[in-house]
């Protein structure tokens, strides 16, 4: 089995922010069941600040841990600060991931971006530096 860091195991065993947000400001879903991971991130944005974030994830230990960490990192951040959170940030916060699991952190970054994109679409705003999320994320496995 995978050698996970203690941090990853901590976030896998006791994930933070599991759940849904009713009337969320933005919802992002990435991944597909075929390759074995789906992440769905909900955010509440108030006055340009991410007040709350929750997730639901279908996937392995690393997928759940990165979802937990990514939602933790984004809470309380401004939208611009949130955009600066990359897969590397998530990985570092988890004390690293095994090489074959790096794609899980990419998926987490993508899920955050998708939620922000949804928020922007719903409110007719443009978030500078935010690109439309890719539908087909299978290529993320190859990073």
């Amino acid at each position: 089995m995978m050698e996970y860091s203690d941090k990853v195991m901590e976030h896998f065993m006791n994930p933070k922010n599991v759940g849904e947000i009713e009337n969320a400001s933005g919802i992002g879903t990435v991944g597909n069941a075929k390759c074995g991971d789906i992440m769905k991130v909900y955010i509440t944005v108030e006055n340009g600040i991410i007040k709350d974030a929750k997730f639901k994830t279908f996937g392995c230990g690393a997928a759940i841990a990165t979802s937990s960490m990514a939602t933790e990192l984004i809470k309380g951040k401004t939208i611009q600060q949130a955009l600066e959170i990359t897969n590397k940030t998530v990985m570092e916060a988890l004390d690293g991931l095994p090489p074959v699991k790096v794609h899980c952190s990419c998926l987490a970054e993508e899920a955050l971006h998708a939620a922000l994109w949804d928020y922007a679409q719903k409110n007719n705003i443009v978030i500078e530096g935010l690109k439309k999320p890719v539908d087909d994320i299978e290529h993320l496995h190859n990073v």
Partner: peptide, 8 residues
């Protein structure tokens, strides 16, 4: 659900 998570 996914298998590895179950195994852990």
């Amino acid at each position: 659900i996914e298998g590895e998570a179950m195994l852990l």
